[in-house]
Design a protein around this nucleic acid. Sequence first.
DNA 1: GTGTATACGTACCGGTCAGTAACATTGTCA
DNA 2: TGACAATGTTACTGACCGGTACGTATACAC
Lengths: 198, 198
Amino acid sequence: MKKAVEPSAERPLRAADRIRASASELFYREGIRAVGVDEVVERAGVTKPSLYRSFASKDDLAAAYMRDYDLDFWEKFENPGGKSYSDPREHVLAYIRVLSTRAVREGYRGCGLSNATIEYPARDNPARQVAEAHKKLFRKRLRELASNMGARHPAVLGDALLLLIEGIYSTGQQSEDGPAQSALTVAKMLIDASVAKG
Amino acid sequence: MKKAVEPSAERPLRAADRIRASASELFYREGIRAVGVDEVVERAGVTKPSLYRSFASKDDLAAAYMRDYDLDFWEKFENPGGKSYSDPREHVLAYIRVLSTRAVREGYRGCGLSNATIEYPARDNPARQVAEAHKKLFRKRLRELASNMGARHPAVLGDALLLLIEGIYSTGQQSEDGPAQSALTVAKMLIDASVAKG
DNA sequence: GTGTATACGTACCGGTCAGTAACATTGTCA
DNA sequence: TGACAATGTTACTGACCGGTACGTATACAC
């Protein structure tokens, strides 16, 4: 049998992957602009040309970071705390519970996608474009969940939850002991006020 | 009568002030890290040594930008749309109305203070410190207004409003036609659900 | 072994960035 | 007129940053 020419699984971990991992960690913690490519490759234990063989530019690497972040996000959102939920209300509340717990811990750095949007105001930036596409989908998903909850105005409840969640991302970086600790209560208020009673 | 030695009012506008104005505009629009000192002085119509005669470093200039922003913010917050309000509920709603109108317009760039916190994750950064102090005060002020509204739990309503407002700042940059358009409705929901009826 | 492809490293380039030194110019007030 | 304060002019530095030209090591094919 011919040895499979799969683009290599296992193995000590290829340079490109080490770079992705290193970039994800550094870009999230310090911000994309603040981190130089030298720092990325050093932490990855590889050299610069290896980076530019797999990524066309730093912008391209940043976009890859965004895509990785996006994947990771959906895993966390759809299975908050590692569990899956059938009830949309419990689903959203579980995500917010897990999120707001993380958000009040020291060193929390918010949502990498939202942060990138702030670091790169230019619409045509590749990283920003990934982030924008993500947020569009996230909004749609929240609206869907709001609808499944039986909200009178799913669009409004969806937006309310999105505003709340983005508020958690943002204030979580501003201080520990921040408003995120009230987030779960607020989420319940919003849902209960939006869903027809009885 | 001796001519007052006020630190100079009127006059064609001093270099330091032109620099502050230029920096404020550029830092807000493009982000602090993205703007070089050369660009700041060029727009101000002055030269680099003038900048460094009035500011110790770029970080110091960024901190000055934060202080200017802070002043401007409180003016906008306490007198939304140029009017003053005695009723706390109307006051907050007026701010959110004006804010969310701005936030759905193209080119909106959110809150300069929140953005700086994201650009500078390090706690000891001078600009970030100004931003953090500001947010602490803002939270306190919102709690105060929530209390004046007669909220059952002023801390919770204050935090809810803060989360909402930060959510507007953030999502306003992500797209026009964004969730900010629902913000006023959401604010009313939050307040009504938090204030004892009857 | 020799060819070939893959994966990686060494060393460097040009540009930009924050910050400065030294000196010239202007306006104001006495 | 003379002194002082504020600003402009020019030119420079050293660090960093994104990006690249080019050489090297390993492994498999025949």
